[in-house]
């Protein structure tokens, strides 16, 4: 380098500069070409290690007898875990409960959220206060929320039964009744997620152009008709999005039914009346110590989601073609 900077003719200097430029250009090309992969690498490395490989390995484990006490000893059993599952009344019971609790929690939750979002969309004093408050249940963990609701829904001293008693409705056994317990578990889900969904709907409402409402108003549409004919159709993609997210959440429901059972364990009630698939998986794997069977349940849950997704996609495509 030192020779290039001396005055002994311009040639070495130019040569060096050209070399330097070439080197920099090459480095630049190399950088442009490969650095994107470096930026996405951490995500994909962690995803592969803790997402993809375990996912595939779950399929492998579901074809084996694996016990929690000795997870390294795997005995090939083919599809036996799955055939046992099909013959298992508790699996069907859990599937049925997951569907009913899913409906009981998702439908009211999204309807209330839509209504609250509509109210929040008006010109409002303290709108930020209402929004933050709507989100506080979302900040409360499943565990903390369920512990409180267990007390509120207590049969003998719970606040809910006390209030119902004032109205002359005799004590409901929220823990042991089949529908009552599913209703109580759904209430916890509704409480935690309604405000969150309301904010998502509110965000979508704010992006509806005012002109749509103005022309509807010119046509003499009432506020209710505007809501039905302008707001809801414009919100369709967002509503679909929240239905998908809530459905995925509902199929995985676990913490609420686990803790709603108090110290009685992962059975989901004395009669398994509110045991969900997620809870059943936990019971098989970590109470009964059958990891192979738990894997089979996990894949069954996934297949159910895939089936639901495919069905929704088909219905959507059909509607688009006919409608």
């Amino acid at each position: 380098m030192a020779s290039g900077t001396t005055t002994a003719g311009g040639a070495p200097l130019r040569q060096d500069a050209a070399g330097e430029r070439r080197w920099r250009a090459r480095r630049h090309r190399w950088d442009v070409r490969w650095s994107p992969y470096a930026y996405i690498a951490p995500f994909f490395v962690f995803f592969a290690a803790f997402g993809l490989v375990p996912l595939l390995y779950t399929a492998w484990a579901s074809l084996h007898r694996v016990e929690l006490t000795a997870p390294a000893d795997m005995e090939w059993v083919g599809l036996r875990n799955f055939s046992r599952l099909v013959a298992d009344e508790f699996f069907w019971n859990a599937l049925k409960n997951t569907v009913t609790i899913g409906l009981l929690s998702t439908v009211p939750q999204l309807l209330i959220a839509l209504g609250v979002a509509h109210l929040l969309h008006g010109r409002l004093r303290g709108s930020m206060f209402f929004r933050v408050v709507a989100l506080t249940p979302y900040a409360t963990s499943v565990a903390a929320a369920t512990l409180v609701f267990v007390l509120l829904f207590g049969r003998d001293y719970g606040m809910v039964n006390w209030a119902l008693g004032l109205a002359g409705i005799g004590p409901v056994n929220w823990q042991n009744g089949a529908w009552a317990s599913q209703f109580a578990v759904s209430t916890i889900v509704i409480w935690r997620w309604t405000g969150y969904n309301a904010l998502i709907y509110l965000a979508a409402m704010q992006s509806i152009p005012d002109e749509l409402y103005e022309s509807a108003a010119l046509d003499g549409a009432s506020r209710w008709r505007q809501f039905v004919h302008v707001t809801v159709p414009s919100l369709r993609p967002t509503i679909l999005f929240t239905i998908v997210v809530s459905t995925i959440g509902a199929t995985q429901l676990f913490g609420e039914p686990l803790l709603f059972n108090g110290s009685a364990g992962a059975t989901g009630g004395s009669d398994h009346q509110f045991q969900t698939l997620g809870l059943y998986l936990y019971e098989q794997g970590w109470v009964n110590l059958h990891l192979g069977r738990a894997s089979a349940i996990a894949w069954a849950m996934f297949l159910i989601l895939v089936l639901l997704g495919t069905a929704a996609g088909l219905i959507n495509a059909y509607r688009r073609r006919t409608g």
């Binding site: 997620g278 894949w299 997704g309």
Partner: peptide, 10 residues
């Protein structure tokens, strides 16, 4: 879209 249950056993 992949539920976390699918990877807990491994």
């Amino acid at each position: 879209m992949v539920p976390p249950q699918l990877s807990v056993v491994p």
